[in-house]
Design a protein around this nucleic acid. Structure first.
Lengths: 337, 337
DNA sequence: TTGTATGCGTTATCAT
DNA sequence: ATGATAACGCATACAA
């Protein structure tokens, strides 16, 4: 079956013309006769020619590859984001390289380094929760590579950002619980190293104070974003005898764990304790009771990030730094009627 | 600042040596004095040198990029598979390009074409359900590019395959229902164009006949893999007055829809109708009742595919064609006690 | 409209 | 242990 080793030179040879002409014909340059173009296309097909993107990339300085770096390709909104980005850039002829950080700053730096070596045309990143020094990110910009941050971002890097309005989402969730008559609202705080969770905490706090409730420190609990943590944290609250009538969890997983643990203690949801999660994970709508939550549209976020990136590519050096704050939506379900 | 334009020539110039020496030093070739190696490394760092993978790829004929093609990056087991593959190949220095087919054969062919143009070192594919002609896949092998199929595969292409034993999974699920005393077991059949679903159907059928039950055609229903379809198909069965005491669904989503519709008709699960799904989607364990299902470990599948791929790369032309059949696990939960 | 010449950055081969 | 040279495949500036 002979591997495809056909190059533009082979086509040129077959037609007694030069490689340049073939190149131009293939790329629809102006100033190529219709005849030769047809001929080139015909023999290209006949010889099973396949353009070599690598060679073109070296020559052009553009790889038509973009890097997408996420904590984990199978968690949270990231699958949707990856999908959204791929959807969007694919039609413009870009390929997407996916890297994973596992929320680890060192791996993040290494992945970025690899992408830079691969000469990606741009990088779209959700920063690892672990990361608190940003030299590897600033370097991207310093080298003139478009950089777009989404989801977990930092504001003071001078780069485009797409994020959810976590503050507002948390505010809405908390307000909803307050308006439902709840007064002792626990907040399960996510990792504070991440702006996302600090914003959710802020939304919670501000909502409380707007409604004249003070934030009881006993109701503020740090809690990793997983089911087990939700369980144990709630059990601890119960053991300590802390009294509460609602939980606003910074993650759906912790919210689920909380519900399970409440059930295990024969505390009824939502009658005795209302619950709102965050993230609109697929399972939340299927549960009984279905969990109220704050939706963050991953697909939309990916698409938005991709569009900002594409604009940046197009504009070149004097691109506009965008700050897209996507408005999350409070989804009210049975866990907080 | 200043964009990184440093090449090995710049390093060479700075040290009054040649590019070849620099290249060798950087790549830890034997026959380079420790002194020059140190010197090269030092100035490389000083000049912020970053190797150009694109140039190396052109020169070497290897891009260190592999293509992973899935129906959709955010559905089913694919996020896990992508993660598993990336996990596995990343440490060997490969980057992963993700492409999506949306179960569409034409897009599949196009995505493969793009990957080939990008000169990926190999392609790992879950075939689109839509696909029934395989010329674009055989072409990959014809050009000497390693190809590995997973999940939705075809056996007669002479390439390595990683798949779940869908037959066995379905057999176990059906057997479990039979042993639970059920005799009128509905099967929700997935798209028959896909081998996966044909195998699940076969597992169902064989299990029935082994236990002396005959497959009632009224209980065999074609049903797309989504919640809505599960609902409407079950409603239809009820409307037609078909009598059944269990459902084995070829997908968790249809199983969920089925449960919801049964509840809506005041039919109790699992008392009146037992249910087993397929796929072990995250939500199945969180539901009430939690759905029994057949687990197909996406992460493991991805890792396995990656390893087979890496072996193939390593072996070169005379690689061994692997057929890994991963044994799925029946997970019994409340929906089928 | 087409040809000539050159270089993108790297590495392998052959020489020294 | 290091240098010189060529080549990977393509696309452009310049010439004709």
């Amino acid at each position: 079956m002979g591997r495809n080793k056909t190059t533009i030179r082979d086509i040129a040879k077959a037609l007694n013309i030069t490689a340049s002409t073939v190149s131009r014909a293939l790329n629809n340059h102006p100033g190529i006769s219709e005849a030769t173009r047809k001929a080139v296309e015909a023999t290209a097909k006949k010889l099973h020619y396949r353009p070599n993107h690598i060679a073109a990339a070296l020559r052009n300085g553009r790889s038509n590859i973009i890097g997408v770096l996420v904590p984990s390709a199978d968690k949270s909104i990231f699958p949707s984001v990856i999908r959204g980005i791929e959807d969007e850039v694919n039609r413009l002829g870009y390929s997407v390289i996916v890297g994973q950080t596992y929320e680890n700053s060192a791996r993040e730096a290494k992945a970025i380094d690899t992408m830079l070596k691969t000469r990606v045309d741009g990088i779209i990143v959700s920063i690892a929760k672990d990361t608190n020094v940003f030299e590897h990110l600033t370097r991207i910009r310093a080298e003139g590579i478009p950089l777009v941050l989404f989801d977990n971002t930092v504001s003071d890097l001078g780069v485009s950002i797409i994020k959810n309005d976590d503050f507002h989402g948390a505010y809405l969730a908390t307000e909803h619980l307050i308006l439902g008559g709840r007064k002792k609202i626990v907040h399960l705080i996510g990792p504070r190293t991440s702006e996302i969770y600090r914003e959710r905490l802020r939304g919670y706090t501000v909502a409380l104070s707007r409604y004249g409730l003070h934030a009881d420190p006993n109701l503020l609990v740090d809690c990793p974003s997983d089911v087990q943590a939700g369980q144990s944290v709630v059990q601890e609250l119960i053991n300590k005898g802390v009294s509460f009538d609602a939980i606003f969890s910074s993650s759906d997983y912790a919210a689920l764990g909380a519900i399970q643990q409440l059930k295990a203690n024969n505390i009824s949801v939502p009658q005795e304790v209302s619950i709102v999660g965050f993230g609109n994970a697929p399972f939340t709508s299927y549960l009984d009771p279905a969990i109220s939550t704050v939706d963050q549209n991953g697909l939309q976020m990916g698409q938005c990030a991709a569009r900002v990136f594409l604009e940046q590519i197009k504009q070149g050096d004097n691109y506009i730094i965008r700050q897209h704050i996507l408005q999350p939506q409070l989804i009210i379900r049975a866990s907080s009627p």
